[in-house]
Design a protein around this nucleic acid. Structure first.
Length: 500
DNA sequence: TCTGGGGTCCTTAACCAA
DNA sequence: TCTGTTGGTTAAGGACCC
């Protein structure tokens, strides 16, 4: 058992929204909401300015728009977030070989394993230096928690938010967490919280007092025992680097429910292909195929089938998913479909099923006269955030927040689009004040999509285009961070997503 | 205009084999 | 041979996390 607070938890502050603010000077200090912009989107991240209006993650977009109508609404740009995340993880790996990323914006680091720290003062110094380095390299802020266990380090970083550092010293752990609500503990969500509340257990102290037997009776062996241990401050989970994924899945929620069985089937096959593409990209194969269906009433069911051996053949996964669909009643409409693969292996069994399935697929295709789904041109999905890397340029879509370049005006980003127009703000991460806004036709040949620019310009290469002296701090127009002015008619504001 | 998308882990039940 | 126990695997669902 570790006695010094040498376990570090890093949590970037409002990560997606902060990255967008760093990329778009006109949004700094403003309410920014990142998430799905379609009719069924939810908030992924809200900037701290937006949180003041009550907007928070997992909230339906519609509700967010009611609470903060003047916020900027942007679609997520995972390529940018991944790049920044890699920079941050790189800094963490300089501290220790034992780095466990939990997501793009969160990770545990075992400082003792790296020899970076051995007691509270050295850990504190490392934590503060890390925060400075992150700000220097990415321009973003992160919060750091230091403690002797994962659970406590995570609680500490939560308390440190935003842009802070908290150490929970050895010996103070139990006293520190005792008065906190049970929901503070990892693994206690709405359901468990409510169950405990009905048992009269509201605080961490009360979990400890209830005793392990009672907790196990209430929550089952695994959950009950671990929760009781956590309430006592015990948590022996080690930091584990490079964990292998155990499943790969893709799913889509449709802008409107799908009723047509043929269409449902076509979507399942598309999802199967996307799933396999990801599986192959990861160099894995899988043995169990899972189909997920969310019906019109939000009831969700899964069906799964385990194959004789692992596969990464598109036709095999497609066929299995298709078979599973046969056993699902979709009358009434389908809101979401998903296809996943579990039981992953690093190899693909040389198998005849794949070949047989390929042949059947080819035959079916030939029999149907060459077109995959007659009359069912799989439209570019209206809900996906990022365009497929290889998306054909047949129809250009201007997603709110994405980078563009203009032959005359240079680098900028899409502020909104609709009714044949796209509104662009011309500014870059290095701009010292909000850039100009211009509106173009969506088919303007001078306008082209662009890759995200680095948030921080490496010293010495001060990117040009920087006009004038430091900002007289924001004399921005009211609609600045808001929707495109050119909006008219019924299309949802700022959404580049097409509605049917 | 309620409720995304990508995961992990646990529980329960059914079934099969030893 | 019959019955009971145990353990592994599969399938389905649910809670939780970011």
């Amino acid at each position: 058992m570790r006695t010094a607070p040498t376990l570090l938890h890093l949590d970037m502050d409002a990560f997606y929204a902060a990255a967008e603010q760093a990329a778009k000077p006109s949004l700094r200090g403003k309410a920014v909401v990142v998430g799905g912009l379609g009719p069924r989107g939810v908030v992924a991240t809200a900037s701290y300015e937006a949180r003041r209006f009550g907007v928070h993650s997992a909230m339906p977009m519609g509700q967010a728009r009611r609470l903060a109508p003047n916020a900027a609404y942007l679609v997520p740009r995972f390529t940018l977030y991944r790049e920044v995340s890699e920079q941050v993880m790189g800094l963490l790996r300089e501290l220790s070989p034992l780095v466990e990323p939990l997501s793009l914006d969160e990770a545990f680091v075992d400082l003792e394993a790296g020899g970076a720290a051995h007691d509270a003062p050295s850990a504190l110094a490392v934590g503060e230096r890390l925060r400075r380095d992150i700000r220097a390299v990415t321009g973003l802020t992160g919060s750091v928690g230091l403690a002797a266990t994962k659970m406590l380090a995570k609680i500490a970083s939560e308390e440190a938010k935003p842009d802070g550092l908290v150490v929970i010293d050895a010996g103070t752990e139990r006293a520190h967490i005792a008065p906190l609500p049970v929901r503070t503990l990892p693994g206690v969500g709405p359901a468990t919280g409510e169950l405990l509340r009905r048992a009269g257990i509201v605080t961490v102290q009360e979990i400890a007092d209830a005793g392990q037997d009672e907790l196990v009776r209430l929550l089952g062996m695994a959950h009950g025992a671990s929760l009781h241990a956590m309430a006592l401050g015990h948590d022996e989970r080690p930091v584990v680097s490079d964990r292998d994924a155990k499943s790969v899945s893709v799913e889509d929620t449709f802008a409107v429910d799908i009723h047509d069985r043929t269409r449902v089937r076509a979507e399942v096959e598309r999802l199967a292909d996307r799933c396999v593409a990801r599986l192959r990209a990861a160099g894995r194969s899988g043995r169990t195929v899972v189909l997920k269906v969310r019906r019109y009433d939000f009831s969700t069911l899964t069906r799964s089938e385990t194959l004789r051996g692992p596969t990464d053949a598109p036709a095999v996964v497609r066929e299995a998913a298709g078979r599973l669909l046969e056993s699902v009643d979709t009358t009434g409409g389908v809101r979401l479909l998903g296809v996943g693969v579990t039981g992953l292996a690093d190899f693909t069994q040389e198998d005849l099923f794949a070949q047989a399935a390929e042949e059947r697929a080819a035959q079916r295709l030939a029999a149907e006269g060459g077109s995959p789904e007659p009359g069912e041109r799989p439209e570019p999905d209206p809900h996906e955030a990022e365009p497929e890397p290889s998306a054909p340029a047949e129809e250009r879509r201007w997603l709110a927040g994405h980078d563009v370049t203009h032959a005359v005006h240079g680098a900028g980003w899409v502020q909104g689009s609709g009714v044949g127009r796209v509104t662009v703000r011309f500014e870059t991460p290095a701009s010292t004040r909000p850039g100009r806004v211009r509106t173009f036709r969506t088919d303007d040949p001078d306008l082209a999509p662009a890759d995200p620019l680095p948030l921080v310009t490496p010293a010495g290469t001060a990117a040009g285009g920087d006009d004038g002296p430091p900002p007289p701090e924001d004399h921005s127009s009211p609609e600045l961070a808001s929707r495109p002015k050119s909006r008219s008619g019924g299309t949802s504001p700022g959404a580049a997503t097409s509605s049917p």
